[in-house]
Design a protein around this nucleic acid. Sequence first.
DNA 1: GTGGTCTAGACCACT
DNA 2: GTGGTCTAGACCACG
Lengths: 131, 131, 131, 131
Amino acid sequence: MIFQIRPDSPIPIYEQIVTQVTFGIASGGLEPGTLIPSVRELAQTLLVHPNTVARAFQELERQGVVAARRGRGMEVTPEAPAACQKLRQDIVRGRIREALREAASSALPAEDVRLLVEEELARVNGQRRRK
Amino acid sequence: MIFQIRPDSPIPIYEQIVTQVTFGIASGGLEPGTLIPSVRELAQTLLVHPNTVARAFQELERQGVVAARRGRGMEVTPEAPAACQKLRQDIVRGRIREALREAASSALPAEDVRLLVEEELARVNGQRRRK
Amino acid sequence: MIFQIRPDSPIPIYEQIVTQVTFGIASGGLEPGTLIPSVRELAQTLLVHPNTVARAFQELERQGVVAARRGRGMEVTPEAPAACQKLRQDIVRGRIREALREAASSALPAEDVRLLVEEELARVNGQRRRK
Amino acid sequence: MIFQIRPDSPIPIYEQIVTQVTFGIASGGLEPGTLIPSVRELAQTLLVHPNTVARAFQELERQGVVAARRGRGMEVTPEAPAACQKLRQDIVRGRIREALREAASSALPAEDVRLLVEEELARVNGQRRRK
DNA sequence: GTGGTCTAGACCACT
DNA sequence: GTGGTCTAGACCACG
């Protein structure tokens, strides 16, 4: 898993970690039983304060997608993939919904909104291919 | 102009006011030379503290879309409509872009993303018609 | 007397009127016994709210440089020229002092400050001749 | 950095803080990468309310000379010194220009103005040495 | 009536 | 600890 942390995003770092782990599990990149990196290790690779990583893990544990294995570390739970796939869809849908709701409230003509959406959709897919 | 404030949104209230006024000017609801509602008046209708409205107005003034007329109120500037139309498009596009970027990073298949977008687009347009 | 009102200056309009009248008297443009324009008249020529002119006159009266003459208007007092010349020097000196004090606190090298002063002095004198 | 706040100046306190920080960066007293004093700390030393300091910092952030580091404080940006040096000169020049413009409009003879300027220049430099 | 500034103090999220 | 937002209410200058 490669994490992309954007420290200056308005989205808190711990939350970025949470969603990226969630996405990682949902897409099968992290399988049940896998030990995820330790707080210290991840903090070092992401250049982030350990407390921040710890908070993200705490949140993930609360959601039941990872569980502490005494003396070994934190492990992806068996129920995680199903849960994360649902979470992922909820998160993505929620963000899209919010964006489009705002677009509607802006009184921009519907066709203009659609145009913007198509442009950005193409843009994102273009980047995806390039990667 | 009808303003919709959501006090529990993660977006600060003063910022919501800023974008709504911007949208109002962009859509022609507020014309140059018009005095926008006074701080106290708007505070009362939105049920927020006058300071919060004042902060939004300061931001709008800084952007040059309204100008304080001492002792009278705040006036929409002549350049405001053009600026706000550009701002509106930037804001809406930015939010859509962020949502789709996250969708892409979620490793959701592109067709699933498009499906979600279509669903939400239909949903929003439905609401619009119903109003 | 020609008044230059700058409505968007940070200096209040009524104060602009006060200092301009003061300067007018100091320079001999307005002599003792002269009737100054009525509130209404001046408000109209300056495109300013009558209240604002009234407040300026009130201030001038308080300073004793003009006095109400029942049924006729407001008149420049005999003591005014001397007082205004002193006032004028105090005002100008005060402003210069403030500007230079700030320059000093900025840690700009003294020679740079002097250079700026010379440039602006030349600039102002240039404009003066052109008028 | 030593800040001098004059609570009774017509210039708002938050603005005094902004210009003093700007001057501090321009003169090299605050270097890029440095954390500036925290809101609470500065509020305590200046004997003003934290909100007032926060407002100044927001303004500085908007100008791009400092950047918030979440949970740590506010950092001087790499571009700040150049920007602040330009700002400083603009501020000082602007104030001098205003003072001299008023002097010119006062119809004080040019030589009298120059005399005042020299007196005040000497005065300020005298104080500077004494410090 | 208008906007602008300031103090006061609460609450929150982040590190 | 850090900054950010908000409510509350005072006071001021201006028109």
